[in-house]
Design a protein around this nucleic acid. Structure first.
Length: 752
DNA sequence: GTTTAGGTTTAG
């Protein structure tokens, strides 16, 4: 039954039973007798598997006819063989790729698998008679310069030996100081054998500890001592031990992580890592949620967080505050921890705080020492972080829960934190998201309509960056703690009041997207339509025929020395649109009574590339031209101010008819329309991607041709108020502080 | 070529 090792090829047949009839592999078929043997080279050797249906062991190998050159090309010279039980274990130990073997006592099974170069049959070596004679291809040698490491499967560890192992990490603690002289890392490992072993690493040097970032990472350990502890096998560092770790994701680059400057790493290592990764993935060993974004954190849970440090402050000797972010917006309001001015290390997080992007993490006790070494901009992974729900009093009665995060003292459940190297594969997506917020804090321009600032404040939910279609919903971002009411109750109430409701959309208006785009004057609160292209063409034409200039008198005058700002005069609408991209900013003029003046405010007075800006007819008081002195920044706010123009804002307005079974109610999406749709209205004026996004969201709110059951239920925050209309008081209702989630949204629209 | 720890929640 076992594997017999012989010294020379000629010994293979002499050692085998006399009545064995050795035939060449292509000649094998299902009718071969139990006295048939084959002889060939091991061209592939699988790992020993001891689990599932084969707890006693199973191993796959491929044998190639010893002299394939003598076979014709069409012949199937290689064959799969599967070994079971003790024979599989023996084979795993004693046979290597390249060895020549003689197999006997097998049964021949046919397969339907069509593998080009392989024999259509499979050999099973299972019974009492099955045996293998092996002649090693090279004697156990020291011929090669590279040392040859044997890796022992975890189910074959014998106590009191020194071994090398390859394994998947199923649990780990960051190194912590012992009562002795070293730091200790506690690990739990497993491999294809399914056996789990504990592993303890002692080293006084932190950098020598295995760099494990995640459950599922692969570890290679050399020269570890085996030891029984409380009935189980365990591994312990011994003299000249070493560790190398790898990311555990299937198909990610195989990059060894080690502090060692000289370590052996070859083709066999790549194969071991790839095989273990595959096995771990197939057996669901990788955590389903290794770390979760802030946007998915639930109160009173423990989780792992991957984030970037924004700022740090010492609270007291046993507590450090870390302000971090991961570019996702928590759905629960976050605690802001105030610290003494001057004690904060790092840039102000104010802009991010306002957007609920900053997580305040209190790091306690034994973790303080590590946190002290943390610097702003570093990337961290924090393990077993506790999302603590803290009641906070709000002005109008009631309590508002806010989330803070505690990294408690102690090491249980792997609690701790580590710095992730900036090139870590896990960070690349995160870094992309963070970069999309570039300059969020650097805006010193108080122009709230400044395009740049405007664009940067658009929150894009992380799921949209992954382009995953997820269930559509809305979330309330308000700080009310209100009980949900019915629409009937809202209708019965007296304005002004705020409500939380859950409702479906019955209809919406306007049905055409361009009709929901409006121009709004922040001064007189006028809302007006954006003129369509045809109207603009006509108005420019009228201006031309009214003025004393002719179409050929089109002139462009530089206002500044550069092309930053120019006047354009006497052009058709098409000409103006063609010229606009050539200059940063262009002011449209006409000749009236021999004088150059701004055009009627029905048309845009300022062109910034393809973006058009309108002035308010009622609130603008145009000044004489040519008074741009003292302006050093040519933004639209400064230009319109100098021209005496009240700039109009782009806004979105949509009316939703809501229904919840008790009543139906019309509610406007107006003041918070941009956060509701995750687009800027100005972008929606000229950017296809933003327009598509609004369309997509409305299609989710009210899927075309859907029945009521198919429409999503929305969590909404409503606000009712009275408006005077021709002396009559009317109740209005707006959807405020509510954001849509989960539509298939594109990446953020790009700026002009 | 010693010892340390030997997973299993803080309670701020």
């Amino acid at each position: 039954m076992p594997v017999y090792v012989v010294k020379a090829l000629s010994d293979l047949e002499t050692q085998a039973p006399q009545d064995l009839h050795v035939i060449s592999i292509p000649l094998l078929n299902e009718n071969s007798t139990d006295k048939t043997g084959i002889r060939g080279t091991v061209i592939s050797k699988g790992c020993l598997i001891c689990r599932g249906e084969n707890p006693n062991g199973m191993l796959k190998t491929v044998i190639q006819d010893h002299d394939p050159q003598q076979s014709s090309a069409s012949e199937k010279t290689s064959i799969n063989a599967i070994l079971f039980g003790e024979l599989a274990k023996d084979f795993s130990h004693s046979v290597n790729q390249g060895d020549v073997v003689l197999m006997a006592g097998f049964t021949v099974k046919s397969t339907t698998e069509k593998k080009d170069r392989l024999h259509p049959c499979i050999l099973h070596l299972d019974g009492q008679d099955a045996c293998v004679y092996v002649c090693p291809s090279t004697p156990p040698s020291r011929q090669t310069s590279e040392p040859k490491y044997d890796y022992v499967p975890l189910n074959e560890l014998q106590p009191g030996t020194v071994v090398n192992v390859y394994a998947v990490v199923t649990f780990f603690k960051q190194p912590f100081p012992t009562k002795g002289t070293d730091y200790c890392s506690t690990l739990k490992l497993t491999d294809q054998s399914g056996v789990k072993v504990g592993c303890t690493i002692f080293s006084s040097k932190l950098e020598d500890h295995p760099k494990i970032f995640m459950v599922g990472d692969i570890i290679r350990l050399h020269r570890m001592k085996t030891q029984m502890f409380s009935g189980s096998m365990s591994l312990l560092t011994s003299w000249r031990w070493s560790a190398v770790t790898f990311d555990g994701t299937v198909d990610s680059a195989i990059v060894p992580r080690t502090s060692s400057k000289t370590f052996h790493f070859g083709e066999e290592d790549r194969r071991m890592v790839a095989t273990l990764r595959q096995w771990a993935a197939e057996h669901s060993l990788l955590p389903s949620e290794p770390t979760i974004p802030l946007s998915a954190v639930q109160p009173k849970t423990f989780f792992n967080l991957t984030c970037q440090v924004l700022a740090k402050a010492c609270i007291d000797s046993s507590c450090i505050l870390l302000k971090v972010w991961d570019g996702s917006k928590c759905t629960h309001p976050l605690v802001n921890v105030a610290v003494e001015p001057g004690t904060l290390e790092g840039a102000s997080t104010l802009a991010k705080d306002r957007q609920n992007l900053t997580a305040n993490i209190l790091v306690f006790d034994n973790h303080v020492e590590f946190a002290q070494a943390v610097k702003p901009d570093m990337f961290l992974r924090i393990y077993n972080l506790h999302a603590v729900s803290q009641p906070q009093s709000v002005q109008l009665g009631g309590q508002q829960e806010r989330l803070s995060f505690h990294l408690h003292g102690g090491n249980s459940f792997g609690r701790g934190l580590c710095v992730l190297p900036s090139d870590s594969p896990d960070l690349q997506q995160l870094k992309g998201v963070l970069e999309s917020y570039v300059d969020i804090d650097n805006d010193n321009d108080d122009d709230l309509m400044n395009d740049d600032l405007y664009d940067m404040t658009w929150y894009t939910p992380p799921e949209s960056l992954c382009m995953n279609r997820v269930e559509f919903s809305t979330v309330r971002t308000c700080e009310h703690s209100l009980l949900e009411v019915t629409l009937a109750q809202v209708k019965d109430s007296r304005p002004p009041a705020a409500f939380h409701v859950r409702a479906q959309v019955k209809s919406y208006q306007p049905r055409r997207l361009y009709q929901s785009l409006k121009l709004f004057c922040p001064q007189c609160k006028t809302i007006q339509e954006v003129p369509d292209e045809e109207t603009l063409r006509r108005l420019f034409q009228e201006a031309l025929s009214n003025s004393s200039s002719k179409p050929e008198d089109l002139t462009v005058t530089l206002v500044t020395n550069s092309k930053d700002l120019v006047y354009i005069q006497g052009g058709t609408f098409e000409e103006v649109c063609c010229l606009a991209p050539l200059y940063k900013k262009m002011i449209a003029l006409t000749l009236t009574g021999g004088k150059r003046t701004l055009m009627d405010f029905t048309v845009p007075f300022l062109f910034c590339g393809k973006r058009r800006h309108y002035g308010c007819k009622r609130c603008s008081q145009p000044t004489l031209l040519g008074t741009f002195e003292g302006i050093d920044v040519w933004n639209k706010r400064n230009i319109s101010e100098a021209l005496g123009v009240q700039l109009m804002q782009y806004r979105l307005l949509m009316k939703l008819e809501l229904e919840d079974g008790t009543a139906s109610l019309e509610a406007l999406v107006w003041e918070d329309a941009e956060s509701f749709f995750h687009v800027s209205a100005a972008d929606a004026a000229d950017d296809q991607e933003s327009q598509d996004q609004i369309q997509q969201i409305t299609n989710m709110l009210l899927p075309p041709d859907s029945s009521m059951d198919e429409r999503p239920w929305l969590d909404l925050c409503l606000s009712t108020y009275s408006v005077e209309d021709h002396g009559r008081s009317q109740v209005c209702c707006q959807i405020l502080k509510t954001e849509t989630r989960g539509a298939l949204m594109g990446a953020r629209s790009t700026r002009q």
